[in-house]
C-alpha cells in the first residue's frame, strides 16, 4: 500500500517552478533512489515532502498511517554552526522531539530508543563526545541515529555518503540496507552514486529535463539511464 503519493506536483521557490508534473508513489518497505544532475531539484523535492516548503501546485499525500512529522531525515548540508556545543547523546535524543509533543522532558521509552539507535549506528564509544569534534562519517551516523529516533516508518536521506571514503561509504550503505530490510523502514535516498542506487534500490526516480519513475529493471532499459550514466562518468 502506498505511503506517499505525489500527483502532478510542481515545486520551486517563490513561485518559480523548478520541477513540474511529478508523479510517483512510494510503498511501505520500498527503497527509492532519487537521481538527477546537480540543481535538478532533488533537495527541493525532499524539502517539499518534509513540509519545509509548500508545493506550487499538485498534491502530496501520505497514507498508510504515515504522518508528515514521522519522517526522519538526513540533511544534505547541516546548517549547524561550527562551534555548537552539543554531545552525541543530546543530538540523538533530540530526534525524539516529535513524540514529546508539549511534554517538556523526555521519558524513559524515548531515552531507551535513543540508546538503541546509538547502538545500531555503532556510536556507543562516542556517546559523550562533542559533535563538532567528530569526523564527517561519524557525524553522518549521529544524524542518522537522530533521524531513526524520529521515525520507524520512513527515512529521507539527502546524499548520505557525500564526502565519505569508500570504506565508510560501504558501511553507510550496509547500515541503510539493514534498516530497510531488517526493520522494514521505507528509505528514500538521493544519490549521485548510480552504481549504489542500482545495487540497493528497488525503485528509481530520475528527475531533470526528462522525468522517469519506475522499477530498477525498467530504468536500466530506458534510454534516460544510458545518457545519465554516460554523462556522469
Amino acid at each position: 500500500m502506498a505511503q506517499l503519493i505525489c500527483e502532478n506536483l510542481a515545486l520551486g521557490y517563490d513561485g518559480r517552478e523548478i520541477l513540474s508534473d511529478l508523479n510517483f508513489s512510494v510503498d511501505a518497505g520500498d527503497y527509492l533512489c532519487i537521481v538527477g544532475e546537480n540543481g535538478s531539484g532533488k533537495t527541493t523535492l525532499m524539502k517539499t515532502i518534509l513540509g519545509l516548503q509548500s508545493p506550487i501546485s499538485g498534491k502530496l499525500s501520505m497514507s498508510d498511517g504515515l504522518s508528515q512529522n514521522e519522517i526522519g531525515y538526513l540533511p544534505q548540508q547541516t546548517l549547524v554552526q561550527r562551534d555548537f556545543p552539543a554531545s552525541v547523546w543530546e543530538i540523538v535524543l533530540s530526534g525524539c522531539q516529535n513524540s514529546c509533543g508539549l511534554r517538556p522532558f523526555y521519558n524513559k521509552a524515548e531515552k531507551q530508543l535513543a540508546k538503541e539507535n546509538i547502538k545500531k549506528m555503532e556510536l556507543e564509544p562516542l556517546v559523550n563526545r562533542c559533535y563538532r569534534e567528530l569526523s564527517g562519517g561519524q557525524q553522518q551516523r549521529v544524524l542518522l541515529a537522530r533521524a531513526l529516533c524520529a521515525t520507524h516508518k520512513m527515512l529521507l536521506l539527502d546524499e548520505p555518503v557525500s564526502g565519505l571514503d569508500p570504506k565508510v561509504t560501504a558501511e553507510m550503505y550496509r547500515l541503510i540496507e539493514e534498516l530497510n530490510k531488517k526493520d522494514g523502514i521505507t528509505v528514500i535516498m538521493i544519490s549521485h552514486d548510480l552504481d549504489a542506487a542500482l545495487q540497493y534500490a528497488n525503485r528509481i526516480l530520475h528527475i531533470g529535463k526528462k522525468v522517469f519513475f519506475g522499477t530498477k529493471e525498467e530504468y536500466l532499459k530506458s534510454e534516460i539511464s544510458g545518457v545519465f550514466a554516460k554523462g556522469d562518468e
Binding site: Q68, I71, Q97, C100, F105, Y106
Partner: peptide, 18 residues
Amino acid sequence: NKIFSVTFDESFARATGT
C-alpha cells in the same frame, strides 16, 4: 529541550513537527 532542537537544527525540528 525544544530550545535545544530549534537552536541546533531548525529545519530538522520543523520537519519533525516542532
